[in-house]
Design a protein around this nucleic acid. Structure first.
Lengths: 228, 228
DNA sequence: CGATGGTATGACAGAATTGTGACAGTAGTA
DNA sequence: TACTACTGTCACAATTCTGTCATACCATCG
């Protein structure tokens, strides 16, 4: 969920403003102050989106965009072009050079964030949208629904993710910390015992459908989901 | 997705060239050779975008643009002005008359198509005129009417579009930002919570017909329409 | 059998999310 | 101009979800 956004902008003030707004929205901003700097970072780790200033010291933003589009690895990274010019021609050049969107300064932070969200959503066709089946259970991320033996089961967000993980990783024991990493995310800080509580809640929700026993406790190790 | 593009251009050679390029891009081109011709077509069916030559026999392109902007129905149809002149004054006049973009001949087909795509991408997806049925609900875009269990329901424009989207995309959960993209258009920048308010208004309007429960809240994810 | 360490369970307060009514600005219309 | 309808935003209420405890329960081992 937390996307890395590379901000290529030479003006510190704007760089800072962008970083602030990006962080505000829950994304992570990486700062680069020129094209070479950006290129170095990109070779080190691929960002999820690039915010690229049109005017840069040294080679221009358009040039960097072209380079990114030419490279197999970076071809699909979305680019939002940032420009101070209001000339329509520049916009087109930006788009033709491979940018996914452009925005002219001065821009409202709200507008920029809306575009970032739109681009990220467009480019990431939700990975695991496929319906998962396991035994009598059917879980559909797209509909956010669980069907057990024909009856609908209501789950909270966490229980839903937990069940989804189990159904896609059956027959294997996972420790509490592994589950925290996989279901909660590896950056959160919660007690391991919290897993117990959610396991309980999940079992409780599954119980009315006579589907208890699906989640087994492996004493000393963790939990296991078994379609059996 | 296939957008109708009305090409208002008196020179057959250019008209043909444009039609070819437009078709190449997957859009449908409708040819009009003068302003009156264009106006007649527009009254018959609203295109998604108008490519308008500056110089036209009879009344000029600018005049047609003004007329389009003055009319409620055609106000929001994007216009790209096409002109041979490079004079700055014309550009100003063209934009003032309500054109969304401007391109001078000779232009590269690539550039033109880039602009067309850019303009179209920003338009809110427009609904088809077909009547949609879902459960006890019947929605007719052409007549802007909603019939629930035999009773008429009055909806504002936004609630109408929202319900139409839901009825054509049932059973699936949509996040607030997805709904903003789909119903408001991805060039509109409003708070995500605004969606909540319109959901409420829609629910309120549906309530008298005992049709509540149609729109379900999926906590942490968004909303879902289900015909039950 | 009792001790020990790991689990299950119920309760709860705070956090997070959503529902709701009000309001002001805008645009269209008479 | 005044009036009406519609929108987007806000503040506050209502609801649901979460993480953490304390306690009860259970298996295993000495």
């Amino acid at each position: 969920m937390t996307a890395n956004i590379l901000v290529v902008e030479d003006e510190p003030a704007i760089q800072e403003l962008l970083a602030f707004n990006i962080a505000q929205c829950g994304y992570r901003a990486i700062a680069a102050y020129d094209a070479d700097n950006a290129w170095t970072y990109i070779n080190h780790a691929l960002p999820d989106l690039i915010l690229l200033d049109w005017m840069l010291p040294g080679s221009s933003g358009v040039e960097l965009a072209r380079r990114l589009r030419a490279d197999q690895r970076t071809r699909n990274i979305p680019i939002i072009m940032l420009t101070a010019r209001t000339d329509e021609r520049d916009k087109i050049l930006g788009l033709e050079s491979g940018a996914d969107d452009y925005i002219t300064k001065p821009f409202s932070p709200r507008e920029l964030m809306a575009r970032i969200r739109a681009v990220l959503r467009r480019r990431a066709p939700q990975m695991s949208d496929e319906t998962v089946t396991a035994g009598e259970l059917e879980l559909s991320p797209a509909m956010h629904r669980v069907n057990a033996n024909g009856t609908m089961i209501d789950l909270g967000p966490t229980e839903f993710r937990l069940l989804h993980f189990f159904m896609t990783h059956p027959e294997r024991v996972y420790s509490r910390s592994q589950l925290l990493d996989q279901v909660w995310g590896d950056h959160v800080f919660v007690e391991e015992r919290t897993v117990d509580v959610h396991i309980r809640r999940l079992r409780q929700a599954l119980e009315p459908s006579n589907l208890d026993g699906l989640i087994q406790t492996v004493r000393g190790s963790g939990y296991r989901f078994s379609c059996n």
